[in-house]
Nucleic acid binder design. Sequence first.
DNA 1: TGAAAATATTTCAAACCTAAAATATTTGTG
DNA 2: CACAAATATTTTAGGTTTGAAATATTTTCA
Lengths: 164, 164
Amino acid sequence: MNKSEGLSEQAGNETSDLSKARLRAWLQILKVSRKIEGELREKMRTEFDTTLPRFDVLAALYRERDGMRMSELSKSLMVSNGNVTGIVDRLVAEGLIVRMPVENDRRASIVRLTPAGEKDFAERALVHESWVSELFDDLSSSDADALIRILRNISHHNEAPHHD
Amino acid sequence: MNKSEGLSEQAGNETSDLSKARLRAWLQILKVSRKIEGELREKMRTEFDTTLPRFDVLAALYRERDGMRMSELSKSLMVSNGNVTGIVDRLVAEGLIVRMPVENDRRASIVRLTPAGEKDFAERALVHESWVSELFDDLSSSDADALIRILRNISHHNEAPHHD
DNA sequence: TGAAAATATTTCAAACCTAAAATATTTGTG
DNA sequence: CACAAATATTTTAGGTTTGAAATATTTTCA
């Protein structure tokens, strides 16, 4: 409840300078995020004839080469379960991934790349990285490190508290 | 084409350390952005019974108290024209904003807050700011400033080149 | 064992979002 | 003036996204 701001700065309802700076920071994160995401979406469409969500799923599966459960996938991408179902359906239809049964648990299924999906993603990942690097052309090495450090702090603080 | 990296680091196709650091930075931006956006969306739904996109439109109109054209709105929010049409339709139905004709241009319309919309937003904006500040609880004043500076650099570099 | 609770996923309705096509209006130009 | 080009917005089709409900299966425990 208390924001650990020392004194009674936050009493009543006037907002502190720190609170305003944090709001500005958030709006700026949102702005950059939308801009870059839009640019990447367009590249994906015009150059790869695919979409960002599909690419994100392939990327996650490329990191976990033995496959992931639907629930792991949705947690990793931070999107809802139902959302992943639709995207996976389309990628299966495209022959880039497959659904496999799980030993001893017929509720679950494991999704993993097909050889075609692996090949496709491997080729595209390098190009994708180069697009990102171009979009972040002005970002120096030290600023990149600072950015990563600060943002990691924020994500760690907002880590989902694990249920017991 | 050249990434101003001095030497032939980027020749062939192996990716540079800088390129990888930028990619990590981007993925971290995306992660924080999704996490925070998810938290705010849930707050909007459970506490305000509204959605983030609606709130964003009200916020934009609150800054431009005399109203904005649909096209200004979509540019400001960085979403497509058609998208704004739908959200505005719903906010009009809720009585929070109105569409007004524009003098001497019957193609355009100006959207602005109703008194009810103004009141609603003003009350909620403070609470929204406090949510953001809590989500960024670990973000110090100096880190907030650094974050804003670095991100502004990125957005400026990716500013849409204005047509003449 | 057998019912209740928990877990994994899909389905569903509604909203969001984009890109492209369609509509309506205004502007520019011969 | 006529009419092509430009501009502002809406409509449309299809994909994405959520949260809740539904389905199927597994686990827990009385």
